[in-house]
């Protein structure tokens, strides 16, 4: 028997690599990146259809007041998720910052020291989280769970279970005041989100975080200071949580030990809705903001159409799963 050789068509596959990737892949990638904005607009339209009163000034400014604290935390959470992490301690940082704020005399003169103390709490928590995750290689879930619990205990120890004292009037204005019909806390969000988005999307540091988050080994071999970038993400996240704690404390007026309860999970959900992958390296600050807005909108719609308030949380659960399913890799 002789060798059976194929007739000469051997170069077909060799030339195929010239062809560019299909347009469909490109389109899907775009949808993944901008899908949340479609979602956002859809929710706005839905809300407007269900209740014409939705677009009233008072409802809108009320909505924004509610969105802002979550959006601030979600920005920080997004940063941590970007580097393959998670921060469960944000709610604890929020409450601790708010409790700290009431531990002063309650006059406006104390606002600066309050802010400094809050930020210091944030920095310390973030450093501890970052240290555990980066240097001790602890899983982010556990590390931040542990700091959350420790911080909770310290807070209770400090307040003996019942915080007393007042938020300075200025913080209350920041948290709940409106200027015309523009909520004052929106200014805080802008002051936080714009620089953050600029750094993340327009500078080399942001690019390094993006690359390190998606592929830590790649980042390391590119000579990036991946440890510092990761710890930095945790620190910024905790600082933002502290700021959000002050804003939310000012909004709620009454500060208890549970200011920000539920924000740890809500902020994760907002970031994931906004297009951040828990596997890191993907997402935009704009997406995190839109994700936060969608989450609050969902609750608002429930009220608008007169369903019992319990449906808010049911709808929230469904939105989480549905949106995540939309992003899942095929």
């Amino acid at each position: 028997m002789t060798v059976k050789a194929a007739s000469g068509q051997g170069f077909a596959a060799g030339t195929l690599n010239r062809s560019s990737p299909p347009l469909r892949d490109h389109a899907l990638a775009l949808l993944g990146r901008y899908g949340i904005y479609l979602f956002f607009v859809g929710f706005l339209l839905l809300a407007g259809l269900l209740a014409p009163s939705f677009f009233s000034r008072s409802n809108l400014s009320n909505l924004i007041l509610q969105i802002v604290p979550l959006a601030i935390v979600a920005c920080g959470q997004a940063l941590v998720i970007l580097v393959r992490g998670l921060d469960l301690s944000v709610s604890s940082v929020m409450a601790t910052a708010a409790v700290a704020a009431t531990s002063f005399s309650g006059h406006d003169a104390d606002v600066l020291p309050i802010v400094l103390v809050a930020l210091a709490i944030g920095v310390m928590t973030g450093l501890l989280n970052g240290f555990l995750v980066v240097r001790r290689n602890v899983s982010p879930f556990l590390a931040t769970l542990a700091t959350m619990i420790v911080l909770q205990g310290l807070r209770f120890g400090w307040t003996h279970g019942a915080p007393s004292g007042l938020m300075p009037p200025l913080l209350r204005v920041i948290g709940s005041g409106t200027w015309g019909f523009v909520p004052v806390n929106l200014l805080v969000l802008v002051a936080v989100a714009v620089p953050l988005a600029t750094v993340l999307h327009k500078t080399t540091v942001g690019r390094r975080i993006m690359i390190t988050g998606g592929n830590p080994l790649t980042g390391r071999l590119l000579g990036y200071r991946t440890d510092a970038l990761t710890i930095g993400a945790y620190v910024v996240c905790s600082m933002l949580a502290a700021v959000a704690g002050l804003v939310l404390g000012g909004y709620a007026q009454i500060v208890d030990n549970w200011v920000g309860k539920g924000f740890e999970l809500d902020s994760i959900v907002a970031a994931v809705l906004g297009g951040f992958a828990l596997s890191g390296g993907r997402g935009t600050i704009g997406g995190a903001l839109a994700g936060s807005a969608v989450l609050v909108l969902a609750s608002n719609i429930v009220l608008l159409i007169g369903l019992p308030i319990q449906f808010q949380i049911i709808l929230k659960g469904l939105v989480i799963v549905f949106a995540a399913a939309c992003y899942a890799k095929r």
Binding site: L86, I268, V269, Q312, G317, I320, V321, A324
Partner: peptide
């Protein structure tokens, strides 16, 4: 979907 997200969503629904 990541189990964290699925069970979180389920948890919200059940709580509601």
């Amino acid at each position: 979907i990541h189990p964290l997200i699925v069970t979180l969503g389920m948890g919200a629904v059940l709580q509601g």
